[in-house]
């Protein structure tokens, strides 16, 4: 039983760790905070899976994103001063194996996109990242946010329009 649980958790972990980390990182702009919050997300999943009651988690992916989202919100409630993105940190965090010019180009692109995204309101950030980056379906997003699929579609559309404007500015 314990072995199965460990195997099951490890599978989920390997499948989602990078995406959850990235989602949190983009929102908090700090490697240290992203690591702490991501650890907390998976620790909560591990604890939830170990519990017999309440019923086991039916959708671990939704659980992870929902927890990540809530932890980021809690983080900003505790530390309202938003940390500005630093290019040095981007250089450290990205796993690059490309040439120096390409590295610089990617660093600059990440900075631009991240700056624009950080100016979106929280819900818009989430739907953009989930839908376009993490390839979550409308249905999955609607379950995480507790909104109808139509509402999510509208939200994605509006978020995209806003991001378009912001990218022009940056």
């Amino acid at each position: 039983m314990a072995k199965n649980l460990h195997f099951h958790f490890k599978k989920i972990y390997k499948l989602h760790i990078e995406k959850i980390y990235r989602f949190i990182y983009i929102k908090v702009n700090s490697q240290q905070i992203a690591e702490d919050l991501t650890s907390e997300v998976f620790l909560r999943l591990w604890k939830a899976l170990q519990k017999e009651n309440p019923s086991p988690i039916k959708n671990p992916k939704a659980f992870l994103y929902k927890t990540a989202r809530n932890l980021v919100i809690d983080h900003y409630r505790s530390f309202p001063q938003r940390k500005e993105i630093s290019i040095e940190e981007i250089k450290d965090m990205a796993d690059f194996s490309q040439s120096l010019e390409r590295k610089e180009l990617i660093n600059s692109e990440i900075e631009t996109v991240q700056k624009a995204i950080s100016k979106l309101k929280n819900d818009y950030q989430d739907v953009i990242l989930w839908y376009y980056l993490d390839n979550l379906s409308i249905e999955e997003i609607s379950k995480i946010l507790g909104k109808s699929e139509n509402a999510v579609r509208v939200m994605i559309h509006r978020a995209m329009e806003k991001l378009k404007e912001l990218l022009k500015e940056v």
């Binding site: 990182y25 983009i26 965090m93 990205a94 692109e109 996109v113 376009y132 980056l133």
Partner: peptide
């Protein structure tokens, strides 16, 4: 900038890895 270009820009964020 059209939607496809924005999506392409967003994809660069995939480089962020733990």
């Amino acid at each position: 900038m059209n939607e496809q270009e924005i999506i392409a820009k967003l994809r660069v964020l995939e480089e962020i890895k733990p």
